[in-house]
Nucleic acid binder design. Sequence first.
DNA 1: GAGCGTCTTGTAAGCGCTTCCACAACGTGC
DNA 2: GCACGTTGTGGAAGCGCTTACAAGACGCTC
Lengths: 360, 360
Amino acid sequence: MRRATPGSDTSDASGGTARQGPATIFDVALVAGVSYATVSRVINGRANVRGETRQRVEAAMRELGYVAHVSARALARGRTQVIGLLAEEVCNAFFTEVIGGVDQEASAQGYDFLLCTTHARREKEAEYVARLSRGMVDGLLIVLPRGLPDYVERLREDAFPFVLIDYDADAPGCSVVNATSRAGTRAAIRHLIELGHRRIALITGRDAVGASHERLAGYQEAMAEAGLPVMPEDIQPGDFLGIGGYAAASLLLSRPDPPTAIFASSDLAAFGVIRAAQERRLRVPEDLSVVGFDDIPEAGWMTPALTTVRQPLREMGRTAVRQLLERLEDPRSSPARLALETELIVRGSTAPPRVTTSAG
Amino acid sequence: MRRATPGSDTSDASGGTARQGPATIFDVALVAGVSYATVSRVINGRANVRGETRQRVEAAMRELGYVAHVSARALARGRTQVIGLLAEEVCNAFFTEVIGGVDQEASAQGYDFLLCTTHARREKEAEYVARLSRGMVDGLLIVLPRGLPDYVERLREDAFPFVLIDYDADAPGCSVVNATSRAGTRAAIRHLIELGHRRIALITGRDAVGASHERLAGYQEAMAEAGLPVMPEDIQPGDFLGIGGYAAASLLLSRPDPPTAIFASSDLAAFGVIRAAQERRLRVPEDLSVVGFDDIPEAGWMTPALTTVRQPLREMGRTAVRQLLERLEDPRSSPARLALETELIVRGSTAPPRVTTSAG
DNA sequence: GAGCGTCTTGTAAGCGCTTCCACAACGTGC
DNA sequence: GCACGTTGTGGAAGCGCTTACAAGACGCTC
């Protein structure tokens, strides 16, 4: 084609025609003395290439330091071998754990991944998704979407493969991976009740996130099962972050008759609770039992180590990738809704209450 | 005017030929009754399109929900409008701060960014870089490289634009953005000396990272200036992480004659130090002064709030993007080496020592 | 030894876009 | 009424790759 210059010497890239820019498939073909189609076959590991030819091509690629052009491949094949990951933030152990799992599985399956942080800029999200889904990625993972944005509907219409991670509300026709938040919370509250706690407070997550409601429901169920009353002021709004946990706990602990245990809807929030307790010279767990949710690495690390509900975040990331790839391979496979098991991890931040409160 | 297909109706995409898949530039051209070249001009905001034509095209794009195919554009234009970011990890406040800055500036400048976490898998890094630089991204940001890998040399040869972030050793011909680690550390140590400390220990960062050596040098300079001896056992190796800080501090504090102040080469390490102190029932700052480095958000947050050397991490990310874009626009612009100012932030974790140690 | 598969290779036609070049339709100024 | 630039538009040639399709070489059968 264009730069098939058969006359000149072919073995010296810097000689004859002074090539500029990285080598293309044509250059390799020229050096190997085969057609570019054959080079392409070698690159893609097609079987029908004679061993000796293959070796010549491989040698030429090495010699020229050939690297396939990503966009060109993507355009020709109609897929990019990249999956996109849409997360709100990157500076939060919850997301980084999930991302870590995605990273691991994607790379194991030969996919790259493209991380987009939305910073909750809702207006940009839709545009992001539109562009990603047009030639940048083959499929999309969306972590912890708040509500169910319009673009999800659009993706569904376009039959573009995607998986929602940790989305707890209804999502008809969508693949979802999440964890059994409600059951996990119930187990945690039961654990506190078994230790003898009667006044157990809850700090919720962000209201827009479905998992918040699930955890609240689990709390209420466990309390009801045990016949314990739930005081409305014992349910404090949080934000899944340390700051919200701290604020909520400060409120709870400054009351004349504070709870003896606090369940926080995330580990970060639980860290905030512990800080608030320490500031008041309350010891954890002697004066206050604290339970978190997620089991991020730091939870096992602190003093006291945090009792928490383990949510298999990395595994969720991995599972989501597998689900997505399944849909990539067979676009007609029906969307699945997977809930991974949570597990109560009892560590040092919970103990029997010092005195049984009046409510008990 | 001129109609491409004068006979049939051109406004109904779902009529005549049943289109499948997302709309292309041709579909838009058909609906708008212009050639695809004109559509391309509109997309790219070229001036030479009549107002009325432009509007027709825009209407057609809206009607079809047209989104440009990213790979196709990239292939045709030779650039992607994406910059790549190579970082070791994503679950570490240091990186996330830098990444946040990059994100912000890139998006302000109309670029997307592609985050690749290398997890210190050195063998994969080079491959990553090769692929990224071939049609995935226009330029590369490399955060905190350990040593100066071979692929950097390759990038330089290929004249591929890249910027190193927080790389402190020699890098001839490379653009670098970092901070004045040495001066910052000197200021921190001086602060401790002014408070009356004489036995000041240092916990280093990872050895492979240039900034570690800079901080060590700053420490040694400040001690020498004050005429204070540096005991070899007061310099403990760390890893920039909490776990290393904890381990090093545990060692330092378990000695019969422990230092009265510890400088940690990162805030995370300082958190580890504080934890180690608390476990020994040492109070910070009364019994032990602690200084960190970085000033990640958590530093101002803890109790006690951490005295630390502020490194403008977000700003470093932003600056690096600006530098990279400069090189993108003018590939012959000479590489610059920018060092942003560090600043000592005095908070609650430092105080005069309880008793002047024998060394004083 | 003609007819038939199989294996290997080359040619050509795209993928969806940008952009150079050409050309028509318009004024201008003389 | 002519040459002349301007402006708006269409046609065509790529960008670097994949992948039908076709064709040549080879070995096999009957």
